[in-house]
């Protein structure tokens, strides 16, 4: 635990001094503002809720989070600090968890910096605060899952572009398997009914949409949390393989 905290602090310090993080946050905020106001017509719809904002979150994260996660391990490899890191008495999964938590904290900060939106809605009408809070919780958990996939692929490959593409594609697949066209595609393969149901139960979208409604269900939270833990631990094991090489 102590080691995780050390890595976390080291990473956060690195993020604060890196311009990439600022660019990421600015990019995220501007895009979410433009999408919410201009593409979804938040003001014209005239409803005091954040549906038009949270609706974009899975798609915005799809591009932004792989960009953050791709450099988690490849930078260390390139600069050679990875060897130095592994000479410390730190378990690999601790290093992985520290790095993951730091990146998650940055992404969460970016999300929380959209606080002007709930304030705007509160100023304009009488929103359902519980539903807004649930929306934020769902978004944080979703970003955790994307990032955990990113950690896994960043540990698997030296090449940042490959890491980005693999993370992107995997997130996209796990998002879309809850969607109608995909279910139809599986149906075409004549898969049994129970399997089709189970497949969509493993879609990020199914669980994200549930939380968006304002319900914190044990099943949704369990899915997100176990997904994050398993992905990170698998990433650590892959990294250990590389270290052995």
């Amino acid at each position: 635990m102590k080691n995780i905290a050390i890595i976390f602090k080291r990473e956060i310090a690195a993020y604060i001094s890196s311009p990439i993080v600022y660019i990421f946050i600015v990019f995220f905020l501007i895009l979410s503002g433009v999408f919410t106001f201009k593409l979804s017509g938040f003001f014209e719809i005239g409803q005091a809720d954040l549906k038009s904002f949270f609706g974009w979150i899975p798609w915005l994260y799809l591009f932004l989070i792989p960009a953050i996660s791709m450099r988690l391990w490849s930078e260390e490899r390139k600069s050679g600090t990875i060897e130095l890191l592994f000479t410390f008495p730190i378990k690999i999964y601790e290093a992985m968890a520290g790095k993951f938590l730091a990146a998650w904290a940055v992404i969460t900060s970016a999300l929380l910096l959209t606080f002007t939106l709930p304030l705007t809605v509160e100023y304009l009408g009488k929103p359902d605060v519980g539903v807004m809070i649930a929306g934020y919780i769902g978004s944080i958990l979703l970003s955790g899952c994307y990032l955990a996939i990113g950690c896994f692929f960043s540990a698997s490959t030296k090449n940042q572009v490959i890491s980005f593409i693999f993370t992107f594609v995997n997130c996209l697949i796990l998002l879309l398997i809850g969607f109608e066209p995909f279910v139809k595609f599986f149906e075409g393969l004549h898969l049994p009914l129970w399997l089709l149901t189970q497949i969509s139960n493993f879609s990020f979208f199914t669980h994200f949409a549930n939380i968006q409604k304002g319900i914190l269900d044990v099943r949704d939270i369990f899915f997100f949390v176990t997904f994050i833990c398993v992905s990170i631990y698998c990433g650590a094991l892959i990294l250990e393989n590389r270290k052995a090489e």
Partner: peptide, 9 residues
């Protein structure tokens, strides 16, 4: 766990 949830609405 069909009915274990917190309703925030």
């Amino acid at each position: 766990f069909r009915n274990s949830r917190v309703d925030l609405t």
